[in-house]
């Protein structure tokens, strides 16, 4: 009994916090927008009994999903999000790998401190940190002042309100999510494996590619998904750092909801985003499973 309760608890949690909201969003996505409170129709009226449920059911349709296919804005936004997510995941990996590698090769007594430094930014609100980047990247910002002061450039660079700023913001924000799984994978790496590879004729570089990379692959996969999945739906960073032409599905979703007050289409956009993300999420879970197996 107790065991069942123990297993049931997380499932109830999942049911309450994921599955029920998901069903509500799915239901709204099948409704039509209306000038009412809440702004969609039909709504379920249980006081009418079966007739109410029948009316509600017959009022649902896939019109909003059809609509998403008719306007190029949506697939462009999905593709643009995908592109931004892929590129920023790759950059985060390129930046995060040397950091994680350095941490895992640092002396034992240094590692907790280095780990702390990676986690430290979480102590400040995410919004404040992104706002700080606005101050750094602005035309009159610190970066331009420093570069002009050093004589590197004569005209200020336009970084804020461009996709470059979005990439900087994403890489900065999501770096810990990449570094931590990489560090966990690299820390387990036995130094003698690299020595063995060198001993058998590898240069250091070759040993890195043949041994370190394959053995940290699970960390690479885990870190990449931990960055890729949330970046796909990212809204705050493109809104604050990106320009009006930074097209991301999270922003489109926000606009559908808040600017267009079109809850049904916003819900449909969210459901499609989820459907797109299910593929990488399943891959991610597979990878976790594999890691769990190889650890035991």
């Amino acid at each position: 009994m107790r065991r069942i309760a123990l297993i049931a608890l997380p499932y109830l949690w999942l049911l309450a916090l994921f599955f029920v909201p998901f069903l509500i969003v799915l239901k709204i996505s099948l409704s039509d927008t209306a000038l009412a409170i809440p702004p969609y129709a039909p709504t379920l009226d249980l006081s009418e009994g079966w007739a109410g449920i029948r009316d509600w059911w017959s009022g649902l349709d896939f019109e909003n999903y059809v609509f998403l296919t008719t306007d190029s804005l949506y697939w462009k936004a999905y593709l643009s999000s995908l592109k931004i997510a892929v590129i920023s995941t790759a950059i985060t990996l390129l930046v995060g790998y040397p950091i994680a590698y350095g941490m895992s090769r640092a002396r034992d007594e240094w590692r907790p401190t280095l780990l702390m430094l990676v986690i430290l930014p979480f102590w400040t609100s995410f919004l404040i940190r992104v706002y700080a980047w606005k101050a750094i990247l602005a035309q009159e910002g610190f970066l331009n002042q420093v570069l002009i002061g050093l004589g590197v450039i004569s005209e200020p660079l336009t970084i804020l309100n461009t996709n470059t700023a979005v990439y900087i913001g994403i890489v900065y924000t999501y770096l810990p999510f990449m570094v931590l799984p990489l560090y966990a994978a690299l820390e387990k790496l036995d130094d003698s494996l690299l020595e063995a590879a060198e001993d058998l004729g590898c240069t250091r570089m070759k040993a890195f590619w043949l041994i370190t990379i394959p053995l940290s692959m699970q960390g690479i996969v885990a870190g990449s998904f931990l960055v890729f999945i949330p970046v796909m739906g990212e809204f705050v960073i493109p809104t604050l750092l990106g320009g009006s032409d930074t097209l991301m599905i999270g922003k489109v979703l926000w606009e559908e909801f808040f600017s267009n007050r079109d809850w049904p289409v916003a819900s449909a956009v969210a459901i499609v985003l989820l459907a797109i993300l299910i593929f990488p999420i399943v891959l991610f879970l597979k990878n976790e499973e594999k890691q769990w197996e190889s650890d035991t």
């Binding site: 003698s192 060198e198 001993d199 058998l200 240069t203 041994i211």
Partner: peptide, 20 residues
């Protein structure tokens, strides 16, 4: 002369077999 250029091979105490 680096390890990879020596006509010497080593069997490690931990064996250091490549797990993958």
């Amino acid at each position: 002369i680096p390890p990879n250029e020596r006509p010497v091979n080593m069997m490690f105490q931990s064996y250091a077999l490549f797990p993958h």
